[in-house]
Design a binder for these strands. Structure first.
Length: 491
RNA sequence: CGGGGUGUAGCGCAGUUGGCUAGCGCGCCACGUUCGGGACGUGGAGGCCGGAAGUUCGAGUCUUCUCACCCCGACCA
């Protein structure tokens, strides 16, 4: 095995960048902070997109599309919202270029200044609530359960492929409800959808919980989140679902007549996940041999590689390979038969390992003779000789097995890296020496959270829904606390 | 915006106190031998040494300016 690239333990972030490049997922573009998602990376995103989209539809949602540009005044309607996003907005000020009078090229035409600047959406609450105003008159118009798949722009100072890019792809759900209870129920239902997706498709265990006020979405009353742990022990916020109360309805004057003939403000939620999930997927499972994909999200689940000495042997092998391919495809398994003559088997083995293909089947003359194939699984790198009989069921089981194994492995990693701290010293020691999640008591004040963040760079990732009640003392202030919250350093 | 670093072939890099024809590895192309874990041989293609100005007989190398990218901070639903 040619190990000519950085290992996970040597330098985690370099390993990550190189992995993204070598697995052919994405590359940096000419535009600062923006990323080109390459066909293979996009194919994985499409698998995520399709699975999520189906889950949204199964919970009664429909897709729509809203404009990329938002008038500056819209963003300013909700005070906290604008406060939260103002610092990272791209702004359109002109609508035309012209030839430079000097003849030196093209310049912005100063005469084409927009009367009101347009913001490139960092999120769409404002333009959507401005639209919903026209859609909602009576309780009969509610609920509205819309989702949009879109790109958004946030001019971050520092970017990282998939985890934080200036432009990213995501989905954002925006719902409108007649009652507070219904909106809260929706926000919590969608968090469950995200958690299911993360665990069942991505094989990535997540903690479900609620954000502390400091970490809350700008303009929300409550932010629910799923938090995952990466292999370097840092936390990654993988998805959020917000209960927005009546903030946006009030900002955009969206009222409806209730069945009691009373004029009331609408209750709202919004929820989103982004291409950041790609980063989460990569960092949860991959190893020093490259990407490791859970079968449910692998664009190619099985690759078949022929091994032959000369062209005479190929037809017989191809016949067998195609037969296996047909049988697997009949089971709904995606298979690639790679009979390219321009690459050698060893080269192909390595390539598909980089790309994280869950199962590799090799067939050579020896196998034709014995009625066998060599099956290698990506998660453990184990190889085994299979009798070809009933191969489709064996492979189907193996794929399930890999999916489950990846989840189990990630879960035990998280559990092994989740620790309790009861004193400030212990808290600091764990952060510096071991990382991971720390369960600790907190007095519930933003000031304490801020102070802890300042001193340690650790933040409250969430207050888990299932945290048991337990009397304790805040690790920082010593004041009483009713339950432990999850601290970690995060991406 | 602070602190540090890097720009030389598609990628990764070397290039000495300035010295004449700018090199190495990988990759690429051709032919042949190979093919069960990234094969090997022979031959070949590929360069405005980030850009501009200066010093000099002579600049990849020295000086000044500039541009771009990366890392560490600040920032980050």
């Amino acid at each position: 095995m040619a190990k000519d690239f950085v290992t996970r333990s040597e330098n985690y972030s370099e390993w990550y960048n190189e992995l993204v490049t070598r697995a052919d997922l994405a590359e940096n573009s000419a535009v600062r902070g923006c990323m080109v998602i390459k066909p293979y990376g996009y194919a994985i995103w499409e698998k995520m997109h399709d699975a999520l989209d189906k889950m949204f539809k199964d919970t009664g949602h429909v897709n729509a599309y809203f404009p990329l540009f938002i008038p500056k005044s819209f963003l300013c309607r909700e005070a906290e919202h604008v406060e939260g996003f103002a610092k990272e907005c791209a702004v359109v000020t002109h609508y035309r270029l012209k030839n430079d009078p000097d003849g030196s090229g093209v310049v912005v035409d100063p005469d084409a200044r927009l009367e009101e600047e347009l913001i490139v959406r960092p999120t769409s609450e404002t333009i959507i609530w401005n639209t919903y105003k026209n859609w909602i008159k009576s309780y009969r118009d509610l609920p509205i359960l819309c989702n949009q798949w879109a790109n958004v722009v946030r001019w971050e100072m520092r970017t990282r492929m998939f985890l934080r890019t200036a432009e990213f792809l995501w989905q954002e759900g925006h719902t409108a409800h007649a009652t507070k209870e219904e909106a809260i129920e929706e926000a919590s239902r969608m968090l469950d959808v995200y958690a299911d997706f993360a665990e069942k498709y991505m094989a990535m265990p997540v903690l479900k919980g609620i954000k502390s006020p400091n970490e809350r979405f700008a303009g929300a009353l409550d932010t629910y989140c799923i938090e995952a742990m990466m292999q370097d022990g840092k936390a990654l916020q993988a998805g959020t679902s917000h209960f927005l109360g009546q903030n946006f309805a009030k900002a955009f004057d969206v009222k409806f007549l209730s069945n009691e003939n009373k004029l009331e403000y609408v209750w709202a939620t919004s929820w989103g996940v982004s291409t950041r999930l790609m980063g989460a997927l990569i960092m949860t499972h991959s190893d020093d041999n490259g990407l490791v994909l859970p079968p449910k999200l692998a664009p190619t689940q099985v690759v078949i590689i022929p091994i032959y000495r000369n062209a005479d042997q190929l037809p017989m092998i191809s016949e067998k390979a195609n037969e296996i391919k047909r049988k697997l495809e009949a089971k709904g398994i995606s298979v690639k038969y790679d009979d390219r003559d321009s690459f050698k088997p060893g080269w192909k083995f390595n390539e598909y390992e980089f790309k994280g293909v869950p199962v590799r089947i090799a067939i050579g003359p020896r196998d034709i003779e014995n009625g066998t194939v060599e099956v290698a699984r990506r998660d453990t790198l184990e190889k085994e000789i299979y009798q070809i009989t009933d191969i489709e069921n064996k492979i189907e089981n193996l794929l399930d097995n890999i999916q489950n194994n990846l989840f189990a492995k990630a879960l035990s990693f998280r559990e092994n890296n989740t620790r309790k701290a009861d004193t400030w010293e212990e808290f600091n020691r764990i952060l510096d020496e071991e990382g991971g999640f720390i369960l600790a008591h907190w007095d519930g004040t933003p000031e304490t959270e801020e102070a802890i963040k300042e001193k340690t760079k650790a933040t409250i990732r969430c207050i888990p829904f299932d945290a048991p009640e337990e009397d304790g003392k805040c690790i920082f202030s010593g004041k009483p606390s009713k339950r432990r919250v999850v601290f970690a350093r995060s991406y």
